[in-house]
Design a protein around this nucleic acid. Structure first.
Lengths: 187, 187
DNA sequence: GTCTATAGAGAGATAGAC
DNA sequence: GTCTATCTCTCTATAGAC
């Protein structure tokens, strides 16, 4: 009749993920994680020797979840162009910012090789999936890779603009401008 | 024979700007600003009652400088298309990230109306300048605005990708992919 | 206007009972 | 494995002499 052996651990990770999405890793304190998770001080340091270790677990989880979400439309059973549009037009909370992309501005993440690696892996996976979709549209390898990078950048930049201006419209405009070019309306 | 009356003040702002570019506002301590500027504790709090006030001065300065730099190629005496390319291909330290864009992930900046406003004004000015350039190329107002937002997003996203992966190549690819579309090589 | 010294709060982390 | 209590360090800010 043992309870889920890592329940406290999982609750700590979930609480950390939520707090990191709002304030980043460096600005989130262990006390905040305890308050949100309802777990006690001793348990936190039993499961995670230091703040950095909790951060590594929570950031890896967030990056994996975000990659799954992002690549889902790109690997769907549909024409390549529709898959790209599915990625670009996916529902997003643009004003909240990208929970992975924002970590590139977090000093604690960028100074830790493992944390930084998790963020990098997310973008590598995303660009790879986009590159495959553009290649399936018939683009040459280099052009597909460049265009995939452009598409990922438009979404990341759209987050930055919408967050800076407190308005989701800017994400929409950034995507509309790219789709316009992709559909060859102008040149 | 009075010395420059605001010399200490200016040195504090300059030191803060450098530190904010590296670590952000929230993670930069008054002690670091003192160490880098060579100014004493008392002087800091004489010129700036609180950390927030120094941040307001330094962020406003950085945003203004960045806007001047960004719009210089866009307002040059050249054909509109060349002005846009001048903006897109400007020399950037991509791995360092955008010193303004990164502030959208800073809790201290985003929770302060004045600081957030300075960041927003930068992007408003940038998008306006880009919109004017695309309109001068003959694009209709809405299309010009959307495409301007896309261009600004590509640069901001290029910063995020290059920083996440520690490689300036990704900024270059994001720009190349956009230029490819702008020049109508594909569609 | 600048300095040194220091206060008060909260950070990250540890101790040790249960 | 979880708890409460507490330690040490650094943070932001103030005090008061010069």
């Amino acid at each position: 009749m043992t309870p889920a052996p890592t329940d406290a651990r999982e609750r700590l990770i979930a609480a950390a993920q939520q707090l990191y999405a709002a304030d980043g890793v460096a600005a989130t304190t262990p006390r905040q994680v305890l308050a949100r998770s309802g777990i006690g001080q001793g348990s936190l340091y039993h499961h995670f020797p230091a703040k950095r270790d909790l951060a590594a677990a929570a950031v890896a989880r967030t990056a994996q979840e975000a990659l799954d979400t992002a690549t889902a439309p790109l690997t769907a059973d549909a024409p390549a162009h529709d898959r790209v549009l599915g990625y670009l037009r996916r529902d997003r909370d643009a004003v909240a910012g990208c929970r992975v992309g924002r970590l590139t501005a977090d000093p604690l993440v960028m100074s830790d090789e493992e944390l930084r690696g998790a963020v990098g892996d997310y973008f590598t996976g995303l660009i790879d999936a986009l590159t495959a979709a553009f290649a399936a549209e018939g683009l040459a390898p280099v052009a597909a890779r460049d265009r995939a990078t452009t598409a990922a950048a438009v979404i990341q930049g759209g987050y930055v603009l919408s967050r800076a201006l407190g308005d989701p419209t800017h994400m929409r405009r950034a995507v509309d401008g790219l789709v316009d070019l992709l559909d060859g309306d102008a040149g």
